[in-house]
Amino acid sequence: MDIAMNTTEALMSPDSTDATSVHKPVRDAVGSPLLDATDARMTCRNVNVYYGEKHAIHDVSLDIGKNEVIAMIGPSGCGKSTFLRCLNRMNDTIEGCRVSGQIQIDDQDIYDKSIDVVPLRAQVGMVFQKPNPFPKSIFDNVAYGPRIHGLAGNRTDLDEIVETSLQKAGLWEEVKDRLDQPGTGLSGGQQQRLCIARAIAVSPEVILMDEPCSALDPIATARIEELIDELRSNFTIAIVTHSMQQAARVSQRTAYFHLGDLIEVGATEQIFTNPTHKLTEDYITGRFG
């Protein structure tokens, strides 16, 4: 609430009127306090992404801190989703997409030739914009990951994993009597929580969320946001969102992207109350985007 008020104030403030197109990305200082989370789980340095000839992301350096929720905001087409998808190499599936720079997890470059994407994606899970449960039963949806990775020794283990995952995703009470029903028969918000349960069933360390609430109504959105907050104790979460309120509500740190540049990153409160960069200020005050 505080932040929302502050945003309104910022909107009113007289000195944010001149929209100069100064456009100087923060690309300095590897390890500067601005970039560095206190306890980084993933470190990205000078990441560039190209779609064929198009240079989509320019020299982004960003750390994802342990057990934090980092929100990535910015106008459409600013590259925040592209950047997010670099973190578990989902961009590999896009033809003509090329990534340079360094993205490390456990001191290992994930774009190194020796890295296998299968375990990487088990370690860095993902939840997508549109709820995309498999056209299978609720149980099979959650059990799929543990099954393919061989995480459960027997049926009892698997049942347990499914139950705890659904509980962590706050869906257990609603579906425990109909685990054999198709996952696609759930409501949109339930489907998205099912997808979150599916992602956490393989116990990833990092969960990437690409606008997880954009297809949901406000009540379902509130449920998911609550859930994200709860999940923070066990997982590191990077979330891309179009809703600044959402970023303000769920995240500890916020990164602002603009036309493929990382403009500013900092504590969420600071970004929303006292942005250092003109573009950030214009965006959060609703001047564009």
Partner: peptide
């Protein structure tokens, strides 16, 4: 739909698993 492929890849299915468990059916 590509979302099904992404869902499978996103939790660490190999390409082969993605095709045979989800796309082919």
């Amino acid at each position: 739909p590509p979302s099904i492929r992404e869902a499978a890849l996103g939790i660490g299915a190999s390409k082969m698993q993605m095709v045979f468990h989800h796309v082919l059916p």
